[in-house]
Design a protein around this nucleic acid. Structure first.
Lengths: 215, 215
DNA sequence: CAAAATTAATCAAACGATTGATTAAGCGTA
DNA sequence: TACGCTTAATCAATCGTTTGATTAATTTTG
């Protein structure tokens, strides 16, 4: 049936995403990917032209689904900046941890300076989300809800950096947290709510007006 | 002069560090490294045994100087947990931003899942520093200085994650911060003090006892 | 001290293994 | 049969590493 054709390509992309994330672009050989996917090596070139073509296909498939990630929480008039920030955190924790393989891929690729055209595209898309968060935080400052001296750009670095650290260095954060974070159940039932709660408390403590931010 | 002989190994390590940082472990071939260093290919194996040995030599040279630094802070009886935390932040910001190439290299390799022996060694070394910071924070909790409900492992993820984010994704953080962070002057005169101040305020706001951490 | 013996450093060349990619033959279905 | 899919076999290139020979430096010996 023609369905198998489509599903096989998707299956290859699924496997390739994971292998690329685990081993890096150079470390992931076409033989490893095809072997893991249970298909003949030549199928990769047949479907995607080349290794780089496969890599790009992995990216474009995911990136398209990422485009609408933060669906304009900022423009929702029924929420104040605190609620919006909470919603951002919730959405991000859910999304990032669910796609942690791809997240590792993104970070490795961006941290690598080569392959500039692809990197530029990734950054451009990532910035859409960054600006959305930034806009919400600045709204909080402007409406007087957040601390006036808050360093918003740095808060963004903390928000994204903390979750990146957990996702990108699972061996390290597993040791720190005392559990293997690659365990699905622990991830879903404990880590996700824990990260959400922590991030909200952390940012709230810093952004709240009452505390002294000038020391 | 006989100095050249000793300096040659150091020179190879210098070049290897840069090439590894630019291209990654897999991407950096022994031919590229030896070529860039202006030495014969066989010298890498002659001096360091293997490519992996060279990589570990690069790694250990950098990490060793930092290891004792944190340990001295933790065991200093004249400081309380707040002072120690401040000092940790100062040292880390100075150190990591000054060695951002090396930091990118570390993160890229640790984020990989396979190649166990090499990654395990790196993690083992990194954990020494992590545990030292963790010990200081737990001291703050146990002595009643820090908030009892503070999520220390997550705070560590924030501490390291925020800095990693800035260093690893310079293109992104440059856009967020509004300046090119690869500009030496901006980095030294503005970014470093800014990150220090921010990290101290952020962690203090979260760790301080007075604020409500239970919402 | 000078000649001889030993060690260390360096090199070009080549090793076997693996890389990404291509080929031509075979397969199943319409 | 004809066409899209799949396969094993094979390609040249590159990988990390090893080799044997050569030179430079050091030590030992007479």
């Amino acid at each position: 049936m023609e369905k198998d054709k489509i599903d096989k390509k998707e299956h290859i992309l699924d496997v390739a995403e994971k292998v690329f994330a685990d081993l890096g672009y150079d470390g992931a050989s076409t033989r490893t990917i095809s072997g893991e996917a249970g298909v003949n090596m030549a199928m990769l070139n047949y479907y995607f032209g080349s290794k780089e073509g496969l890599f790009l296909a992995v990216f474009e498939r995911k990136i398209n689904s990422f485009r609408t990630l933060l669906q304009n929480i900022g423009s929702d008039g029924s929420m104040n900046a605190w609620d919006k920030l909470d919603k951002c955190i919730d959405n991000y924790v859910e999304r990032i941890i669910a796609n942690n393989c791809f997240q590792k891929l993104i970070n490795r690729e961006v941290s690598m300076n080569k392959r500039g055209d692809l990197t530029d595209k990734i950054i451009e898309i990532l910035m859409v989300n960054v600006y959305e968060v930034k806009r919400i935080m600045e709204e909080g400052v402007n409406t007087g809800l957040f601390h006036a001296d808050a360093d918003i750009p740095m808060v963004i670095a903390t928000l994204f950096g903390t979750k990146n650290y957990i996702v990108n260095m699972p061996q390290l954060s597993s040791l720190i947290l005392g559990h293997d974070i690659r365990d699905e159940k622990f991830m879903e039932n404990e880590l996700k709510p824990r990260v959400k709660t922590y991030m909200k408390r952390l940012l709230k403590a810093y952004l709240v007006k009452e505390h002294d931010n000038s020391k």
